[in-house]
């Protein structure tokens, strides 16, 4: 098995990990990954098997195009630490571009 690329994965997951965390999580995940590799033994049983992503058998669950009440602006913003003029405020984004 290829070595787990912790930095790349952490970047995808948007997690800032300390070097201790990197070390600990790498170790634990490698152990878990080698455990889950036991599923490779099931391979012969999987030929022609469809994946299950929904267990209910439901299909076409939709809603009509009707409006319902929204939250108030106060409710929308009530849990944010940083708001301005009825909007959420974040550090300037364009500089990243």
């Amino acid at each position: 098995m290829a070595k787990f690329d912790i930095r790349h994965t952490a970047k995808l997951a948007n997690l800032g990990l300390s070097s201790e965390e990197e070390e600990k999580i790498s170790r634990e995940l490698e152990e878990i990954l080698s455990y889950v590799n036991k599923l490779n033994e099931v391979d012969p049983d999987l030929i022609g098997v469809e994946p299950t992503s929904h267990i209910t058998g439901l299909e076409n669950v939709t809603r009509p195009d009707e409006t319902s009440p929204s939250l108030t602006q106060t409710e929308v913003l009530q849990n944010s630490k940083n708001t301005h003029n009825g909007m959420f405020k974040v550090p300037a984004i364009l500089e990243d571009l």
Binding site: T9, A10, L15, E21, L46, V49
Partner: peptide, 28 residues
């Protein structure tokens, strides 16, 4: 953090079939 990392890895390009998709098939 650990589960987010495991899941991110299992869904990532190159590993999806080996982990996530396979798990969904075993689920069947």
């Amino acid at each position: 953090k650990k589960r987010i990392m495991l899941g991110t890895y299992a869904l990532s390009s190159g590993y999806y079939d080996q982990y996530y998709l396979k798990a969904q098939k075993v689920r069947s």
